[in-house]
């Protein structure tokens, strides 16, 4: 999008904001301040337009942003960071924070207008063949080894649509996690949800919700990670396979 168009979109965005029955009116000055502060502090990860960048998600499609009223959800995330997702905390003045929140909401409104850039619509993804996808699901893709259209995937297309369904199909990072069985030097076997693992430490959360860790070299353990099959499959999908399986999943309503 050229500068001219970008500016036009900004203008339209401001008009939309002024017309919207927003509980917190946003002045053009605040939006400009928010745009500048966002670009400097947030832009590289989330994109200068808040529609996603190198490491950060598209905020205009974020559930947190959708639920936010006047910064009540976004503010704590900015101030505290999200260590688990690699986002650092930011120290900002109240005015800068409010301006950034206003800018993000404004971008969300713009992104929902026709022609917005850097977005993927569900309609874009409708190139697959559901029958071929079903065959792949039950055959070469080996999806049916773990999944069932009448079991865990029943109604999946009602819960997830478009890009989110595609992303979760490829690598469902928020799906059920890995489990681990740890054999202690005493011979005792401890099993639970895998809570942490690196080269040196293995940890689980046991049935009572307690966190327990051991030096990885002093115990023997077996990890069962159902997501490994998804990671392995990434190297096997053709683009047609990917679109076909998506088309099939979209029939599971």
């Amino acid at each position: 999008m050229g500068k001219r168009l970008q500016n036009l979109t900004e203008l339209i965005g401001v008009v939309v904001v002024l017309q919207a029955a927003s509980p917190q009116p946003r002045s053009p000055e605040q939006l400009q301040a928010g745009q500048r502060a966002f670009a400097a502090q947030c832009g590289f990860c989330h994109g200068r337009d808040a529609m996603g960048g190198e490491t950060g998600p598209n905020l205009t499609r974020s559930a947190i942003v959708a639920d936010d009223v006047g910064g009540d959800k976004i503010g704590p995330v900015i101030r505290d960071g999200r260590a688990d997702k690699g986002m650092p905390p930011f120290r900002l003045s109240d005015a800068d924070l409010a301006a950034i929140v206003a800018f993000i909401h404004d971008q969300k409104i713009k992104s929902e207008s026709p022609g917005a850039r850097r977005s993927v619509n569900a309609a874009d993804l409708q190139t697959g063949n559901a029958d071929a996808g079903r065959q792949y699901f039950n055959g070469a893709g080996r999806c049916a080894t773990c999944h069932s259209p009448t079991g865990d995937l029943a109604g999946v297309a009602k819960r997830l649509q478009g890009l989110e369904l595609l992303q979760r199909m490829l690598y469902p990072s928020r799906a059920r996690g890995a489990t681990v069985a740890v054999r202690l030097p005493s011979g005792e076997l401890v099993a639970g949800a895998l809570a942490y693992r690196d080269e040196f430490t293995v940890a689980l959360t046991d049935a009572e919700g307690r966190y327990r860790s051991w030096p990885a070299g002093r115990v023997t353990f077996t990890v069962d990670n159902p997501l490994e099959a998804h990671a392995d499959q990434l190297g096997r999908y053709t683009d047609d396979d990917m679109h076909n399986v998506l088309a099939y999943l979209q029939t599971l309503r």
């Binding site: 994109g47 598209n58 850039r117």
Partner: peptide, 10 residues
């Protein structure tokens, strides 16, 4: 319609 400026895609 992603255009030809900057990122121009997703």
């Amino acid at each position: 319609d992603h255009g030809a400026y900057g990122w121009a895609g997703a």
